[in-house]
Design a protein around this nucleic acid. Sequence first.
RNA 1: GGGGCUGUAGCUCAGUUUGGUUAGAGUGCCGGUCUGUCACACCGGAGGCCGCGGGUUCGAGUCCCGUCAGCCCCGCCA
Length: 584
Amino acid sequence: MRSNGAGMVTPDMAGEEVRIAGWVHRRRDLGGLVFLDVRDRSGLLQASAGPGWSSPEAMEAVRGLGPEDVIGIRGVVAPRPEAARNPDMATGDVEVQITELEVFNKARTPAIPVYLPPEEELPSEKLRLRHRVLDLRRHDLQARLILRHRLVLEVRNFFHEQGFVEIETPMLTKPTPEGARDFLVPSRVHPGEFFALPQSPQIYKQLLMIAGFDRYVQIARCFRDEDLRADRQPEFTQIDVEASFVQPEDIYGWCEGLMARLAEVAGIEADPPFLRLTYQDAMERFGCDRPDLRYGLEIGDYSDVLGALDSNILRGAIAKGGRIRGLHLAGGARLSRKQIDAIERAAKAEGAPGLFWAKIQEDRATGPMGRFFRDDTSARLALSPGDLILAAAGPDRVTSPALDAARRASIQALELPRTTAHAWLWVTGFPVFEEGADGTMGANHHPFVQPHPDDIHRLDSDPLSVRGLAYDLVYNGTELGSGSVRVHDADLQARLLGMLGLSEDEIATKFGFLLEALRAGAPPHGGIALGMDRLAAWLSGGTSLRDVIAFPKTTAARALYEGAPVQVGAAELAALGISVGGSE
RNA sequence: GGGGCUGUAGCUCAGUUUGGUUAGAGUGCCGGUCUGUCACACCGGAGGCCGCGGGUUCGAGUCCCGUCAGCCCCGCCA
């Protein structure tokens, strides 16, 4: 039906007869002469219809065309007259002079425009999702999805080259007792019983290691029934990786090699090995476990100097065992009171009672904390005139998140320059456990993380201090992937599950199959899962996962194009042995 | 579950602060003129449940209450 892609026609094809098929992008009707921009995946091409070269039928048909009509044209490639060339168009030096035209399908006037005039805003995202087929015709989205395809291809090639095997794992699986809420799938054969869609193939990939596959990879769809964000969809795709007889270094090496290859595909810079920070250092220097290292600003400990000032609050914080940490903002004194208040609000939103701050002037310090400054305070803190110091006092668990928020708000307020466009980082040594708000102990990552050999003796005496062989890959302040070396000893695994509050019965019924596998001779193993959607979004320069997913869900977890989810009929429910209650 | 922003013509938006005649613009759509356009140009026309429901008022796009939807965030997401 066609000889060339519309975007593939070049000046050296002049004189050739071509057949082009695609959509009518724009039509410019000059009366005796009609121009069409024909669009397909490969690009745009101008076609012209005129009485000198087009059949009367083609002239007639071309006048009836509207945007998004699907047509096939036959014509001759011609260089455009010098004055009629369009340097803004990839194929702007040529056109196809239409001899024959066939209309494959008329299109209704599109509900949202595929062609957008310059400086016209995109239609609202609601409409873009509702009319996704039209939205997906736009070059921008096509380019993102095609880049995603190339990234996925590169992932498969890379791991194949490294000796990995891609193995599919079940989508109908067993509900998990902790972690995210499961999507449940009723079984008709077993009324009242349910499968769950996998939150990740975590246990399956461990089983594959025990089965002896050594190196496993899967581009795996995962499901979590939790509330959405711009970087979170209820169904998403992971690059799921697991390998036997490995240490964290092996995983780092593979991931760094992969990132370098993917960055190359996307045309951006990645220069492994990536920087590494321990969890502790990350919290100390940046107040969070996934700092954005595109900016150099770091948190400092000012307990000695600020704790000695004549402020009851500052002294009190030290006396209670806390610290005074803060941010030294060079040139920050130019921030207005309003801007500083905004930074403080960000810190308060993270739970800090407030921020102390001082502006350093030529002869004195001003601001709520500045009045406590002594003659040598600025010098001892290495503050110069024009600087601003922000500080938070108290236990680290309060000041760290507050200063993380203050850091991000300060970067924004001061418009600090980036030191790099792409900041990759490993954060290592996450704690195995975390304390929940209700005081119960939960798994920080998941319950299969191998405790650090240096810390394992503290499992009973001080479990919260036990580090795990767990690591995150961070890109520009966002978690891109998370992994660990796993527990391969059944007794240790059972003990860890018990520490999380599971009874022996629960452990047996919920994780018995895993423990049984571990007892069958499990190799030491570990791995990582990388967010494929996030990777595609960031590497294509976007921020929302919706831009790299053909048919994404809204923030209320609805599919607007097809209209899901829906209620189902009583008969269907009855067949599944399910009754639906009221909204209570 | 909570907070914020948004919802007016097919689409993008103005109008809402301070209630007041017939709700506007650009674009798209329909009809017409036009042989080198490319945001074609020009002439004419049609097009509105102001998200939905209730209330206040002589009068509501505008004020109040509720509700729905989209987006952003908190909780949540190992």
